[in-house]
């Protein structure tokens, strides 16, 4: 097995979703660092911590359905020198124990990593109770919290590794990923991810799309490549580090392309679009369009159909870009 920092897609041949990547990378990291422990609230199988549990019996802690106490426990563990990774569905990682995260972990800047899987609309038929379209807004609004939203398998490797390597509270958002989103990056060495830094995955000067997470980064990338064929040059920025956000990349995009469209599998209130807008309005105002769930409780259905319904697939995005250009240029 290669070192994590030189992983390529070949090292991920045995897994199919970013969740699996999380489970796999955490094992590698735990082999190197005995302070890492993993906690599950009855979702070990879904969050892919099963192999971790098998390999590290004393370092995997199953606490049953007890999200609030578990988050506070993580705080206690971190305050005594451990690095707890707590994984559950994004809806239950960020809403049930919200205050515990804020007061017990974020305020004292404890070294706890919270991993929310099945985020956005990716729990499709699970419906409103299981959709997580508020998690970025919630976690982003807590001071001291780092919020990372990887889009593909390789980027997930890098995000999990980076989260383990810095000291402080961190939220990692993953989708269920049953539909295997396309790979943007082929190897960890090629993947430019860094906390606080955005990656331009396609150049262009007509307009910028800023997206974070699967499947919207992929859908934006596909849409931009289609538009390129029609002579519309769209810059696409992968904003996997939602907090801290890369202000420079946003200001540069505003200056050079004159307009920004944000795309997120999240409520348009408080998420990636809001984070970008906070920079744009204060640093370099340009027209913006926020694409996401339009402040409603999302309906249920297969994830692909839901993403299409809320305008997050490439074909809708093509139309959105054209409308935006018509209105603003």
């Amino acid at each position: 097995m290669a070192e994590i920092s030189s992983f390529t897609m070949a090292d991920l041949a045995d897994v199919t979703t970013p969740r699996d990547v999380f489970g796999k990378v955490l094992i590698e990291l735990a082999r190197e660092d005995s302070r890492i422990v993993a906690l599950s609230t009855d979702l070990m199988l879904s969050t892919k911590l099963k192999d971790f549990a098998k390999e590290f019996p004393g370092r995997f802690i199953e606490t049953g359905l007890t999200e609030q106490a578990t988050v506070s426990m993580c705080a206690g563990m971190a305050s005594c020198g451990l690095i707890p990774f707590f994984a559950t569905f994004a809806a239950f990682a960020t809403m049930r124990p919200c205050e515990q995260v804020r007061t017990d972990i974020a305020y004292p800047k404890l070294n706890v990593k919270i991993v929310g899987t099945h985020a956005g609309l990716s729990m499709g038929p699970g419906g409103t109770t299981h959709h997580a379209t508020e998690d970025i807004a919630i976690m982003r609004s807590m001071a001291n919290m780092t919020v990372l939203v990887p889009s593909d398998m390789i980027q997930t490797v890098k995000v999990v590794k980076s989260a383990a390597e810095f000291e402080g509270p961190c939220y990692i958002r993953l989708i269920r990923g049953a539909e295997s989103p396309i790979d943007i990056y082929q190897s960890v060495e090629e993947c430019p991810f860094e906390i606080g830094k955005a990656a331009v995955i396609k150049e262009g000067n007509d307009v910028t799309i800023i997206a974070a997470g699967a499947p919207v980064v992929q859908e934006s990338f596909v849409a931009a490549n289609e538009l390129e064929k029609e002579g519309i040059h769209v810059r696409v920025i992968d904003m996997a580090s939602v907090k801290p956000i890369d202000k420079e990349a946003i200001v540069k995009a505003a200056e050079e392309t004159g307009g920004i469209i944000t795309v997120e599998d999240h409520n348009i209130m408080g998420g990636v679009g809001s984070a970008v807008a906070e920079v744009v309005v204060q640093e370099r105002p340009v027209p913006m369009k926020l694409v996401g769930v339009p402040d409603v409780y999302s309906t249920l259905g297969p994830p692909d159909e839901l993403w299409a319904k809320y305008g997050l697939n490439s074909s809708s995005l093509i139309g959105t870009v054209k409308d935006f250009l018509k209105k603003t240029k």
């Binding site: 038929p125 309906t299 249920l300």
Partner: peptide, 9 residues
Amino acid sequence: NKLDSPFGM
């Protein structure tokens, strides 16, 4: 479990 159905998981 289908799109916009009243019935799901």
